[in-house]
Design a protein around this nucleic acid. Structure first.
Lengths: 215, 215
DNA sequence: GTTAGCATGTAAGGAGTTACATGATTTT
DNA sequence: AAAATCATGTAACTCCTTACATGCTAAC
């Protein structure tokens, strides 16, 4: 469906941003990353890689077969253009950042953005979900006549899930704001590795003051 | 993508099973029903209807324009073949019933199936999700080396969501088993209509045997 | 009288899956 | 020795979205 192409491309850029990798491994990482629904097929990955090669976002090098690595594998790595493209996409704030398909990927690579961007994307996503809730709730209000038990239960569960998602985002936003010490993006990192989880399940301290990410 | 076609078809069959309807309304109901992700477009609905017409699953009749209904609208209704097809699809137990896209629709029309079928589908779905959890958890165990904070948080949240889904299913299964009085599906219906909500949030009475996610 | 929603479609095209091919390497 | 998994692709096909067309009707 629609906008997945950009999604896969961003994901590939992000993974290669960490270091070179060959197709097979790329696919595994990708599936682990966005694997909660579909599984990415080779028929999708390899053509994408070819396309990115043509666009000069990545380069391929075949590993010379040493006695250690018996088999020649095609390793992909980012070009400078690819690096720039990744940064461009990651700093882009707008609908593409918080639509269903894209958000997860964006989030997964959050370490490579500034807090400012992160906040905007998180808030945009939350607003998006909130809109969805409002829309459904208002439609529900109209259709109050003959309601099927199971249909209603499904709806209820759906609403609850989205509400939960909103709370999650709110917690993350709070965590970001309340001086999350390590903002990364300064890669100096003298060994310090204390992992303060971004979304500790603290009782939601601040209710979202109806932030409008929008536009 | 892929298997949506059958899904839309089932949804249309199910909605028309309640009574005749025209395209525009069908679309609205559909969007409310499966609307948590994408929105169904006309470019998708009308061709599907045409296809179902060709397959003789539905018939169309143009409303005669009375002084009341000013405008002629094309109303669709099930044929007998369509009715049978709906029943066939709803009693079909197997992967198609509990894959992501299909499960919601199946569930929404659960009132028109026997409890036996419902249980099998619910359990199938639960097993499916459990497998997914196991797969991810085992893969996580392997990749324990360099973990990015945000990537981990995303993963954690994903796991939690699926675990929640599993609990929901378990509650529903329990509710079904503990003599949910009105099983519908016997349309004789001698009055009895007390609506015990299928998944009341009762403190989970029975823990599913081997289920339960580790948290 | 103009905007917003009702109502029905078609054509072109993008995105990704399935199935097909092929073969090396590792594990059982 | 067989099975699993690594590894890389291509072609055909399906499904769906976007954008285009068209016109009625209700509300503001």
């Amino acid at each position: 469906m629609a906008r997945r192409a950009e999604t896969i491309e961003l994901a590939v850029l992000g993974l290669l941003h960490e270091g070179p990798m060959h197709g097979y491994e790329l696919r595994k990482r990708l599936n682990l990353m966005l694997g909660w629904g579909r599984v990415l097929s080779y028929g999708s990955l390899y053509p994408t890689l070819k396309k990115m090669l043509r666009g000069a976002l990545i380069e391929e090098t075949t590993t010379t077969l040493t006695p250690v690595t018996r088999r020649p594998r095609i390793v992909y790595q980012l070009t400078e253009a690819g690096q720039r493209e990744f940064e461009r996409l990651m700093t882009e704030v707008g609908p593409t950042a918080w639509e269903d398909d894209n958000f997860d990927i964006r989030f997964a690579f959050f370490s490579r953005t500034d807090m400012e961007i992160r906040l905007r994307v998180l808030e945009g996503r939350r607003t998006r979900l909130q809109e969805r809730l409002d829309r459904v709730q208002s439609q529900l209000a109209m259709t109050q006549k003959e309601v099927d038990r199971y249909a209603v239960e499904l709806q209820r569960h759906g609403v609850e899930s989205v509400e939960r998602e909103v709370r999650w985002l709110s917690d993350l936003i709070n965590a970001e704001r309340s001086g999350n010490p390590s903002t990364i993006s300064n890669p100096s990192s003298t060994g310090g590795h204390q992992s303060a989880t971004p979304a500790a399940a603290e009782p939601a301290t601040v209710q979202p003051p109806e932030v409008s990410g929008q536009k």
